[in-house]
Design a binder for these strands. Structure first.
Lengths: 356, 356
DNA sequence: TTGTAAGCGTTATCAT
DNA sequence: ATGATAACGCTTACAA
């Protein structure tokens, strides 16, 4: 005859039910849908659970129900400030709900992403949040085959796997250039690091705007697959000046790069914005307090994360959004570094918002 | 009579076992301890699993075995760069192992931490990584009552719950001040934000060093519970100059603050380091490329995370570390901002390492 | 609204 | 080294 497993006298649903004088299934219902119980039993189960400090066993729940209350999140990097804000939004939205987050790092590899997607989906997540719109064909297929709500974040496009929230990086890049052109800049350089799909789209916006203005010149473009950093900003800028000494403005695909450019200008005694205008991307906190203050394209990262998680949760509760694709827009935060007429110092940054 | 649940024809262990011609339990053993099988069966189970692309059901595994392969990680903030590096280390260490990470944010609240600890521990995590050494009495009790490996990170102390990896923040703070004193600074201010336990200990190091030198003066200290930011650095520095106009150096408890101070000096035409020396803390990437380059206390954040996770995993595999407390030390990265004789520009930063 | 019975997919226990 | 059997704690399906 078999065994008696170690009786850890843990509090199970059965104990709660016994104390409340109901059947286990009734107690179970209380935790999932209290409304379904009569008021009397509801109260009794509730106090029984509290008295025994019952905590549901998630593994048992997952096994029995064939689904979990875990929302999987796939992001390309843990280090990048941009994703830190997104994550904060996601965690805030999930906080207090029944759902929890399972985070995984794709390291900017869509093959790694595909692999993680497989692992996640076999565990039946409640929902999924994935970065970007450039998944592999296989990834798309398995996502479409899954039946959980999925939100693609950071970008928007016309073919969401399910839902989408983000903004147009190419439009945002274009807006940065329009601003510089309006300020009278002509030889506008582009500095890009990592060159992930989003940075590439910012570049496309730059390229389109410059081409339209009849100003595009390949020698104004300096990029690298290396990850972004302040130091790298200085290096790329130095390269740019070598290739195109007459550069009068720089659009940096990341704020880190922009700060590096600022420092490099200081080192070379290039005055900003008089001799060199600088525009960054993301509007990290330090941009507004640098000297001179640095213009940047503000993106709504926290809101993106928060809304993405909320969209998943709402969908799980049967409330699908009217529009599957949400455009959060961006704003060009115009500050001293790109204002030829100089010092908007005391005044607030000029905010030129776009939300398509 | 009851039901026939929807037959999803999922691949279970049973299918694998059948194809391999063994009993389910033998197949189960293959995945947990292949060595225990005879070579023949091992090969057959392996190929059967591959052929059916079997993926184990973690919920069933957790329920049956009464434990999970999840390492819980409790950190106070998702936004802080410092923790981003730690997390990267943790994820890197876990990557490829059987373990996964469950992350939770305590928001710098030890009560929130206690709550999360309860939730985590009822789910029987494989291990736990918690930030700091200032848990509530209750938290300590439930951690000690748990039987999983636990690593406290970011700090060291004499009474680990289990294991510990970090460094002495007070020693590090003291080292920063020793350096400034050696450079001839006397009126050394302290700027601190958030004032979490680690910042407080850095302050204690500052206070001790200043007191020993007979230079401590409360009017040189400006702190705030607000979260750190570059902008805040400028604000706190302005306050400091109001309280103590003769300040000749600032020790900032975070690099963000230090950068803010640098910008504020620029705004006020205070020359760095001639009129004002600046030292930061953490040595974030930008410190080395600012103009002037900024001195900072380097901490080994990535290694901390990586080693913490490794320590948990090793402990789970029966290899406990010789020493339960690991001191990762710190280094004062001396750069231009605190070097009176000026420009160490071309030369590498002077690195003064300490590892107790 | 509530209860009964079966079963979710795996592993622990004991036996061989 | 391998297997038979009974849990693990909960929820689904169905009935009342």
């Amino acid at each position: 005859m078999a065994r008696k497993r170690s009786k850890l006298t843990k509090v199970r649903l059965t104990e709660v039910a016994k104390l409340a004088g109901v059947s286990p299934i009734t107690a179970s219902r209380f935790f999932r849908n209290p409304e379904a119980l009569s008021v009397g039993k509801r109260v009794r189960v509730e106090s029984a659970a509290k008295e025994l400090s019952y905590v549901p066993n998630l593994a048992a729940r997952a096994l029995a129900s064939q689904r979990t209350e875990v929302i999987g999140v796939l992001i390309p990097s843990l280090t990048n400030n941009v994703f830190a804000d997104v994550l904060r939004g996601i965690y805030d939205a999930v906080d207090g709900s029944r759902y929890s987050i399972q985070l995984a790092n794709t390291r900017y590899s869509i093959l790694q992403e595909e692999k993680l997607l497989r692992v996640f989906l076999t565990q039946k997540p409640a929902g999924l949040i994935v970065t970007g719109i450039d998944q592999t064909r296989e990834s798309r297929a398995i996502m479409e085959a899954s039946d959980c709500p999925i939100v693609q974040i950071m970008e928007i496009g016309t073919e969401p796997v399910d839902m989408m929230i983000g903004f147009s990086h190419s439009d945002a890049g274009r807006a940065a250039i329009s601003h510089l052109l309006a300020e009278g800049c002509r030889r506008i350089g582009f500095l890009g690091a990592r060159m992930d799909p989003r940075v590439q789209r910012r570049f496309l916006g730059y390229q389109a705007a410059m081409t339209e203005a009849g100003l595009f010149d390949q020698s104004l473009v300096v990029t690298t697959p290396a990850p972004t950093s302040v130091t790298l900003g200085g290096t790329l800028f130095a390269d740019l000046l070598t290739k195109a000494p007459d550069t009068d403005a720089v659009f940096c695909a990341n704020d880190d790069l922009a700060l590096g450019v600022l420092f490099e200008c200081r080192r070379r005694h290039i005055s900003v914005p008089e001799q060199m205008a600088i525009v960054g991307f993301n509007d990290l906190e330090f941009m507004g307090s640098a000297v001179p203050t640095l213009t940047s394209v503000r993106t709504n990262r926290y809101e993106m994360g928060r809304n993405a998680a909320t969209m998943v949760i709402e969908a799980l509760e049967g409330r699908r959004p009217e529009q599957p694709v949400v455009d959060l827009g961006y704003s060009v935060m115009t500050r001293q570094s790109s204002t030829r007429r100089g010092h908007a110092a005391a005044s607030a940054p000029v905010r030129e918002s776009v939300q398509n």
